[in-house]
Amino acid sequence: MDREQLNAALLAAGLPPESFQIPGTHTHDPLPTDFWFLRKGARGDWEVGACERGKYEVRERFNTEPDAAAWLYRTLTGQAPSGA
């Protein structure tokens, strides 16, 4: 699962669009107060976490985009991504 597939899967699962941000595929203007995110880290890894009241908190880091996307999907839906 890549970022675009994650975006589509989260929306298909019924998550509100403002509940997550995936740069390059799903962003907001203006930003909501609280949301989950997946982004490329400064070290070349993938970061997933939550932004609450403008403060980003990285909860996990992954070497690959598919691993990060799967973690965020499981965290937000409580289910494994299809095909996982």
Results as ranks from 00 to 15, higher is better:
4 E>N: 12
26 H>N: 06
35 F>N: 01
26 H>R: 07
36 W>K: 07
1 M>K: 06
17 P>S: 08
37 F>Y: 14
23 P>I: 05
45 D>Q: 13
29 D>V: 12
77 T>A: 08
19 S>I: 01
26 H>T: 06
12 A>S: 12
48 V>P: 03
58 V>H: 05
38 L>D: 05
24 G>C: 05
56 Y>W: 12
51 C>Q: 09
33 T>V: 15
40 K>E: 14
24 G>K: 03
78 G>C: 08
82 S>G: 12
27 T>N: 11
19 S>D: 13
24 G>V: 06
47 E>D: 15
5 Q>P: 00
83 G>V: 06
35 F>C: 05
44 G>C: 08
80 A>T: 13
21 Q>K: 11
15 L>W: 02
57 E>A: 14
68 A>C: 08
48 V>G: 00
59 R>E: 14
75 T>M: 09
42 A>Q: 13
52 E>A: 14
16 P>F: 00
52 E>I: 13
5 Q>S: 14
49 G>S: 05
13 A>Q: 09
80 A>N: 13
14 G>N: 06
40 K>R: 15
21 Q>E: 13
17 P>V: 01
30 P>A: 06
12 A>I: 02
55 K>I: 14
84 A>G: 14
50 A>L: 14
60 E>I: 00
55 K>N: 11
65 E>L: 13
11 L>M: 09
40 K>A: 15
13 A>F: 01
28 H>V: 04
32 P>F: 07
59 R>W: 11
52 E>H: 12
24 G>W: 01
39 R>P: 04
23 P>G: 02
41 G>A: 15
43 R>Y: 10
55 K>F: 10
43 R>L: 14
2 D>E: 11
8 A>G: 02
17 P>K: 07
49 G>H: 04
35 F>K: 03
61 R>N: 11
47 E>G: 00
25 T>M: 09
54 G>K: 01
40 K>M: 10
51 C>A: 14
1 M>I: 10
28 H>A: 10
2 D>Q: 11
6 L>N: 01
65 E>H: 01
77 T>L: 06
51 C>K: 03
53 R>L: 13
39 R>N: 10
8 A>S: 12
67 D>H: 12
67 D>A: 15
15 L>T: 04
2 D>V: 07
78 G>V: 09
8 A>R: 13
17 P>H: 08
22 I>G: 00
41 G>Y: 00
73 Y>S: 02
15 L>N: 02
54 G>A: 05
47 E>R: 08
67 D>Y: 03
44 G>N: 08
46 W>L: 04
52 E>T: 14
56 Y>P: 07
53 R>Y: 11
24 G>D: 07
22 I>V: 15
55 K>D: 12
18 E>L: 09
46 W>K: 03
49 G>A: 06
83 G>C: 08
23 P>L: 04
